[in-house]
């Protein structure tokens, strides 16, 4: 499923709203999560999971082809851990 399908499905349940509004709503939700992650904040959604940002420390890596040492800077990785309830729902059958 992609975003447009998600928008259409939510539309079906809310005939009083414009598709345009639902699009904006879906984007607002995604944007709110993105903004929080950019600030290195956690996003906890009960029954779904937790989004967080993990820090990878700077290290000396190697170019696998040439074997040259390269400095890898500290970086941040967006991370998602599935919630217990969702995990159970995925394994119901």
């Amino acid at each position: 499923m992609v975003k447009s399908e998600l928008v259409r499905e939510i539309c079906k349940e809310n005939p009083h709203l414009y598709e345009r509004d639902i699009e904006n709503i879906v984007s607002a939700i995604i944007n709110e999560i993105t903004v929080a992650l950019c600030q290195l904040e956690r996003v906890e959604l009960r029954g779904f999971g937790v989004f967080s940002v993990k820090e990878r420390t700077a290290r000396t890596g190697r170019n696998p082809r040439t074997g040259d040492a390269v400095e890898v800077e500290k970086k941040y990785i967006p991370f998602f851990r599935v919630g217990k309830e969702l995990s159970q729902r995925l394994n119901k059958n």
């Binding site: 939700i29 709110e32 999560i33 929080a36 600030q39 290195l40 904040e41 956690r42 996003v43 906890e44 959604l45 009960r46 967080s52 940002v53 820090e55």
Partner: peptide, 12 residues
């Protein structure tokens, strides 16, 4: 890391 946590309420 961020001390604040974003929840459903923030999304709403």
């Amino acid at each position: 890391m961020g001390e604040k946590s974003v929840t459903r309420a923030s999304l709403s």
